[in-house]
Design a protein around this nucleic acid. Structure first.
Lengths: 121, 121
DNA sequence: TAAATACTGAACCACATGGTTCAGTATTTT
DNA sequence: AAAATACTGAACCATGTGGTTCAGTATTTA
């Protein structure tokens, strides 16, 4: 289950690809919570929730600490910086690409028009 | 393989959770490419690359069109808007949460200091 | 000390993933 | 028409995922 050396972006995007896990992150941003509390909130067995928390922990998005019999989950130190950066950069590439294509279309239109002119001359 | 009704965020984050697929997106932002070209660039069989492209297509991040025997892959219409928005919102929650915790710590420090004063009085 | 609580680990399940090979089909190219 | 190219689908493989149950252990609480 542990997945030692997945590249960090792989791990965090994978962690974010599950509705329950995104929900847990939002929950923890409101207040720390025990496994039991999370399991109840998301209608799941303790064991099931433990696994989700494990995935989030592995990705550095959550940290946990056990005191007595209760394991408390908190937000981790990673703030999705790299993930935000990757997506932001992609959006810029996307924009650039579509602008480029637009220009090519414009170019073609102008040429067509010019050809039309020629024929009519 | 197809995964008909995965929520869109699930599908796109899952699509982004693989290094090869992120690479394909970057590649396509530079120029359209055939399956063969992508497969070569990423040292993979045609069949393997086809699957990755399938995942990206399913997530709306890539579109493909077959002309003759060549299937050309292009960037899709989704620009990772929702994904960026989710992450941005999370970062704000994260900030808020940590500020909150800081304030609690400050509060405790002040109290401690006050107690110290009292004892010394 | 007994009972309740909170978690943990192993084992299982069905299905997904990331890859492969192999055997096609359809479309160029020669 | 033959050969090369480009893809496609099925089948297989090992491993991961999202969940469960069951049988514990450790820690409170009564």
């Amino acid at each position: 289950m542990v997945q030692y050396f997945r590249p960090p972006l792989d791990a965090s995007f994978a962690a974010l690809s599950d509705t329950t896990r995104r929900g847990v992150l939002e929950q923890l941003s409101r207040s720390d919570a025990s496994i039991t509390e999370l399991a109840e909130k998301f209608h799941m067995t303790l064991t099931g929730m433990k696994k989700h928390v494990g995935v989030l922990e592995q990705a550095g998005l959550v940290t946990t600490e056990k005191v007595g019999r209760v394991r408390t989950c908190k937000l981790g130190l990673r703030r999705l910086e790299e993930e935000a950066a990757w997506i932001e950069r992609y959006r810029q590439l996307w924009d650039a690409r579509f602008n480029e294509l637009d220009q090519i279309v414009e170019e073609l239109k102008r040429k067509e028009k010019a050809d039309g002119q020629k024929k009519r001359e």
